[in-house]
Amino acid sequence: MENSRRDFLRRTCALVAGVSVSPFAANGTTDTETEQAIKYAIIHDETKCIGCNACAEACRETNHVPEGVSRLSIEKTGPYGEYPNQYYHFTRHSCEHCEDAPCVNVCPTGAAYIDKKTGIVSVKADKCVGCQYCLLACPYDIRFINPVTKAADKCDFCQETNLKQGKQPACVEVCPTNALVFGNLKDPNSLLVSTLKTNATQRNKQDLGTRPKLFRITAKPGEISI
């Protein structure tokens, strides 16, 4: 009698332990699998950029960004050098899709999120209350309140528009000089990875530990003013 009671207790304990551990084990494997699959990133080759603003226009059109705000802009500095041999520098100003995104960390409602499948930092407009914490938290100062939806808005690599249709983001598609390269960091055969391997690239404010995914192939340095 005592023996069977001990057996019963032992078996029950084993069962409970097994049941409680199994979901963790299962979750763990699927998480790593999905995270491994896709991690989108973009390269802006500033040596190829001509400052035509086609990307900014295409972005506005594709994502229906209202006038007065923008998800993507090209900042121009210069002119450098003496006339008539002058040149400008063009820098892309848009979401850098940080892996450790401050905007997501501060969002009180969970509207700002990182898509687990693609690594895209995005906003659920219906969850956003417009508190603007994320606007302040973003070290790259790229977020804005969309005057139509009244929610925080930013570049999402066209995940609701072009990516859904199996196309490249609008800015990448339209660039006349192929200065933009978009792709999957996890795919060793992608143009993105091979471009990263063969070029020296920089990322903005890397010291903050945000791990941004907008890579810059920087143009030749400007003149030094003393």
């Binding site: 001509i50 035509c52 603003n53 086609a54 226009e57 006349p176 000089t177 192929n178």
Partner: peptide, 15 residues
């Protein structure tokens, strides 16, 4: 317009 302007750049600058 801004659109026509970038088209104008692309007349020469395209690969």
């Amino acid at each position: 317009t801004t659109k026509q302007r970038s088209d104008e750049c692309q007349r020469c600058h395209s690969v």
